Amino acid sequence: MTVTARLHAFVGLFVFISAAMPAVAQEWQATEKVDHYNVNGSTPMALYQSIGERGPKLSLGRVIAHTTFKLTWQRDYQPQGQACVLASAKPRLIITYTLPKPAQKLSPDVAAKWQAFYDGIVEHEKLHGQFMKDLTQNIQDVSIGLRDENDPGCKKVRAALQAQLKPISDAHVARHSDYDRVEMSPGGAVHQLILAFLNP
């Protein structure tokens, strides 16, 4: 059964909360979590077939692994006379990696092959996680200090920010897609991982 290691739901939730903070860049750190799903079998082929039966289900079918994120924002819009400035934008980013895990103890030779396969899948998904961190930083970079001199209700600044978010998110989705296309094409890193795992 063919299984493709694919994508990530782009889950972006933007929350606007007022708080008195200075107009300076804010340090932040992503929270990263791992969820495992069990796969059955004592041979590489049986384990791989179980991945095809039990892996995360996306629109394209079952996948080997899946990376999602939830992004929320604490933003401080400050009226300054007739002007408005976005003084701070602090993200809360939670990245979740869903990965396979054997449900039973494997023989030493199969366990070694599984570990190499698993480590390669983790490396692939971790780069997707880095893309999500980059997206968050890009949004923060265009947010802090955004200003309109004639915006007493802070509506123009909010609209200006939303206008900048679409090209950033579009580039983010394309980056994921391009990466997966290369990794999973014949000869790509994920394709090679699968072949190395299944071949005697």
Results as ranks from 00 to 15, higher is better:
Ala103Trp: 09
Ala103Gly: 13
Gln104Ala: 15
Leu106Trp: 06
Leu106Gly: 02
Pro108Asp: 13
Pro108Leu: 06
Asp109Glu: 15
Asp109Leu: 12
Asp109Arg: 14
Val110Cys: 11
Val110Met: 12
Ala111Tyr: 06
Ala112Leu: 11
Lys113Arg: 14
Lys113Pro: 00
Trp114Lys: 02
Trp114Val: 01
Trp114Asn: 00
Gln115Met: 11
Gln115Leu: 14
Gln115Arg: 14
Ala116Ser: 14
Ala116Met: 11
Ala116Cys: 07
Phe117Glu: 00
Tyr118Gly: 08
Tyr118Glu: 08
Asp119Glu: 14
Gly120Trp: 04
Ile121His: 00
Val122Ile: 13
Glu123Ser: 14
Glu123Ala: 15
His124Gln: 11
His124Asn: 12
His124Cys: 08
Glu125Ala: 07
Lys126Met: 12
Lys126Phe: 05
Lys126Cys: 05
Leu127Lys: 04
Leu127Pro: 00
His128Lys: 02
His128Asn: 07
His128Val: 02
His128Phe: 04
His128Cys: 06
Gly129Met: 02
Gly129Ser: 07
Gly129Thr: 03
Gln130Phe: 09
Gln130Ile: 11
Met132Ser: 09
Met132Arg: 01
Lys133Cys: 07
Lys133Asn: 05
Lys133Glu: 13
Asp134Pro: 05
Asp134His: 08
Asp134Thr: 13
Leu135Trp: 06
Thr136Gly: 04
Thr136Val: 14
Asn138Ile: 00
Asn138Trp: 04
Ile139Leu: 15
Ile139Ser: 05
Ile139Phe: 13
Gln140Tyr: 09
Asp141Ile: 06
Val142Arg: 08
Ser143Thr: 08
Ser143Leu: 06
Ser143Trp: 03
Ile144Lys: 01
Gly145His: 05
Gly145Pro: 04
Leu146Val: 04
Leu146Trp: 00
Arg147Glu: 10
Asp148Leu: 07
Asp148Glu: 13
Asp148Trp: 04
Asp148Asn: 15
Asp148His: 13
Glu149Asp: 15
Glu149Leu: 14
Asn150Gly: 06
Asp151Asn: 06
Asp151Tyr: 01
Asp151Cys: 07
Asp151Met: 05
Asp151Thr: 03
Asp151Arg: 01
Pro152Cys: 12
Pro152Gln: 12
Pro152Asn: 13
Pro152Val: 13
Gly153Met: 11
Lys155Gly: 05
Lys155Leu: 14
Lys156Cys: 06
Lys156Gly: 10
Lys156Ser: 11
Val157Trp: 00
Val157Ala: 04
Val157Asn: 00
Val157Phe: 03
Val157Met: 03
Arg158Ala: 09
Arg158Gln: 11
Arg158Met: 08
Ala159Asp: 15
Ala159Tyr: 08
Ala159Ile: 05
Ala159Met: 14
Ala160Ser: 10
Ala160Trp: 00
Leu161Trp: 08
Gln162Asn: 13
Gln162Gly: 10
Gln162Pro: 02
Ala163Pro: 06
Gln164Lys: 15
Leu165Lys: 04
Leu165Asn: 02
Lys166Val: 10
Lys166Ile: 08
Pro167Ile: 02
Ile168Glu: 03
Ile168Asp: 01
Ile168Leu: 15
Ile168Tyr: 02
Asp170Glu: 13
Ala171Glu: 10
Ala171Gln: 09
His172Met: 09
Val173Met: 09
Val173Asn: 02
Ala174Asp: 08
Ala174His: 06
Arg175Val: 00
Arg175Ala: 07
Arg175Pro: 00
His176Thr: 03
Asp178Thr: 07
Asp178Pro: 01
